[in-house]
Design a protein around this nucleic acid. Structure first.
Lengths: 252, 252
DNA sequence: CAGTGGTCTAGACCACGCA
DNA sequence: GCGTGGTCTAGACCACTGG
């Protein structure tokens, strides 16, 4: 009496498919409530766990999110556009503007959970920055919250012998941010490399970004180089993939 | 007697945490078999479903993958490096080399499931390409398989009035690929825009890329522009996020 | 064939949200 | 307080893998 009684695929998949189609067909729009476990049990004549599994599929796919005590809802997707190349042009930070200002025009940005420490860097960071064993770095950790929603975690590593005593080691780095300060110190960033990965979040990342199930994160690892290819900053960012589209514009 | 008997968090989370820590500590390396459902039931004195949930967490996180009838195994992560900007320089396709050749040096690449059709494009594509209603496009659909593992799905859209009759409408586009042919037709691509998103795969994408649970996909949408900003190609790519690192190098 | 994960049932108690 | 999802148990049969 168990298992796939009728069709080929598992019951929970058939139910998930039906719901997915209904969503794609527009029967349920962003923010709408989907039929709950009890509805599905009745409609499809299955056990609670099977209905749960079906709803779980949609959450894992990132199409829906559950709210405890309330229901399962169709998710929305309205990302920020992050222009990878233009945003790092001199004109941005050279004039005291934040790199963020272009993409957050008229929205409520809060920088949160700022932590500035000095420590020995992890090995991969030391490697990228070309540091010798035992060298210290300034570690700047922070979270960006946009309209109440955390969207980005960032950790910057800067060689301490370059930045010690500057505003970079303070919580507030002043107008134009880190890059303006580096320029004043004679280490103006002239070249950048960004590496992009994507994976599911760790527990900690999911918490700090308030991610619902089925939301991957994008990792952007940026290395900033000063003249003659000296790396001066390594920045590891963790982005909520539902909040971002990355854009790179370049010539052939 | 049910629910979180001892600690604060759910049992399955505690079990998952223990396994995750063991993996991170190196007790289980890539490819190693994890304790199975039966082991966990005995070790932690829980029901089968609870052990399953714990293993499910690790799979959703992309740390482990299950093989039916065999066990649950620690996943590996050895991505390809895709240099977004250099790979599209003239030198690549201008000399008849494939854009792929740089990143697949000495490996076994197969292009698979090639489909070339002519059709009206989806609205978003027509918009990007600046086409009028009713205009047709050449649609090139294909899959790239690297060392037996499918890693990339790509769908290119090209305005049919630009490419009709050329090798672009054939399965084999000849040396240098689409871009070399476009150049011959007087529509040499000189500028590119790539947009990057990340989300969980659809059922179909998961199948075509043989993705295991908990593996997101990266979407790369590239628009190629000829002189004076005319868009000549829109290419939607779906990448296995476990197979790729994207890299963008640029000056300030 | 024995062991594995995959699916499923039919119960149960809990914490949370909202009216 | 009632309905929601979240967790859990103790069974069961299936399909697949591997020796």
């Amino acid at each position: 009496m168990a298992t796939q009684g009728n069709g080929r695929q598992p019951k929970y998949q058939r139910i998930a498919d039906a719901l997915r189609n209904a969503i794609q067909a527009g029967e349920y729009g962003p923010g709408d409530r989907l039929p709950g476990e009890n509805d599905l049990m009745a409609t499809y004549d299955v056990a609670r766990m099977t209905a749960r599994q079906a709803l779980g599929v949609l959450q894992t796919e990132g199409l829906a999110e559950s709210r405890k005590g309330s229901g399962v809802f169709v998710r929305d997707f309205k990302p920020l556009r992050r222009r990878g190349i233009q945003r790092l042009s001199h004109e941005q930070w050279g004039t005291g503007r934040s790199i963020w200002s272009a993409e957050t025009e008229g929205r409520n940005v809060v920088v949160d959970q700022i932590e500035v420490t000095e420590a020995e860097p992890p090995e991969r960071v030391a490697g990228v920055l070309g540091l010798e064993a035992g060298a210290q770095v300034c570690v700047r950790n922070r979270r960006f919250v946009l309209d109440e929603k955390p969207v980005l975690l960032a950790t910057s590593y800067l060689p301490l012998d370059l930045v010690a005593g500057s505003a970079i080691t303070q919580r507030d780095t002043g107008p134009g941010g880190i890059y303006a300060r580096l320029a004043e110190l004679g280490h103006k960033p002239v070249h950048f490399r960004e590496e992009i990965r994507c994976r599911m979040p760790s527990q900690d990342e999911a918490n700090r970004l308030s991610l619902s199930m089925g939301t991957p994160v994008v990792l952007v690892c940026r290395t900033a180089f000063a003249d003659e290819g000296h790396p001066v900053e390594f920045n590891e960012m963790t982005l909520d993939s539902a909040s971002y589209v990355l854009e790179y514009d370049f010539d052939a």
